[in-house]
């Protein structure tokens, strides 16, 4: 449980700045704000659907900044050719949600 988060601090800063640029309300981004950003990756919609499933940890249909970082991390890895996992590996779970 003490393992470091795979999202590195410099990546987290980048993802946080994207998060903030999307106009979060109450620290959360709704699905309709996140969707176009993920679609921009040009990844198949079924892959993006899985990315969402894995990142929306509390299943509330919104992403907070840590959940958003998980989504962005998975998208960037997928663009590098790594498969999106079927379930979230423990090192990818944000420390705040373990």
């Amino acid at each position: 449980a003490d393992a470091p988060w795979v999202v590195k601090p410099e990546e987290k800063m980048k993802f946080d700045s994207i998060f903030d640029s999307l106009g979060p309300v109450g620290g959360m981004l709704s699905g309709d704000k996140v969707k176009p950003v993920l679609l921009n990756s040009k990844l198949p919609v079924d892959i993006l659907g899985r990315v969402w499933e894995l990142s929306d940890l509390d299943r509330d249909g919104m992403l907070d900044r840590d959940e958003f970082s998980v989504a962005m991390y998975l998208v960037y890895r997928a663009l590098e050719g790594e498969p999106v996992p079927m379930s979230l590996p423990p090192p990818l779970v944000p420390p705040s949600k373990r």
Binding site: V34, K35, G49, W52, D56, D60, G61
Partner: peptide
Amino acid sequence: QYPAGGSSTNPFL
């Protein structure tokens, strides 16, 4: 894989 029916919280479904 996804729950059948019901309202989804996933904007990609």
